[in-house]
Design a protein around this nucleic acid. Structure first.
Lengths: 108, 108
DNA sequence: CGTGTAAGGAATTCTGACACG
DNA sequence: CGTGTAAGGAATTCTGACACG
């Protein structure tokens, strides 16, 4: 059940490259961060670093923005999405718990 | 049969990040390029960009170097490795050709 | 051979701010 | 609200070279 630190999630891409990849300006990318749509890591010095997932997320955001969707709406949709996923995760955990309770389990 | 441009192959990582990821100095990384062990792409301006595969390759190189293996030996091993892979590819293609010849195929 | 370093320049990134609408 | 821009500074990256061993 290891969460392999997959290539898709590793935050290694600088903002300039993200800009090339997405077609967004750096200004836009930083603004979407300000609006809590995207969460880059920081290098020791403070440079933003993004993952491929972030890049895809940004492309989604760009599409939504083109349709005129405002950043706070996009944010709300993202939160709803996340809630659904979390709920799914919880159900999964509960299942596991029930099964373990019923049949007994040595080590977690 | 699309060669999906996978995350692992995309050249998007700058040399500074590669240096953090591998523990090698930028000097070393550039030198290994000079010795034809690694082939970054270049951004429009000329900055090197590496893939996750390149990073793994560099880690392999670093291990070999620690064992005292010289760069030209590493290079030769890499070339041999590549030849084997190419040969495998050719055999595969020939198989395909034979099958197609035997059973007929409309469009390639 | 493999790596360190100082050198100088050009591009990158950062933040906070003003602008427009 | 979302984005552009000029501002100033600090870190990044590049190349070619000298050094050592």
């Amino acid at each position: 059940m290891e969460q392999e630190s997959s290539y898709k999630e590793r935050k290694v891409i600088t903002i300039g490259v993200v800009s090339e990849l997405t077609g967004l300006t750096e200004r836009q990318i930083r603004y979407y961060e300000e609006r809590k749509l995207i969460f880059p890591e920081r290098s020791p010095r403070g440079n933003r670093k993004y993952s491929f997932m972030d890049v895809e997320q940004l492309i989604d955001i760009a599409n939504k923005r083109e349709e005129g969707v405002q950043t706070f709406e996009i944010r709300q949709d993202m939160l709803k999405q996340k809630q659904k996923e979390d709920a799914r995760k919880v159900r999964k955990e509960m299942m596991r718990g029930q099964i373990n309770a019923r049949f007994g389990v040595q080590k977690e």
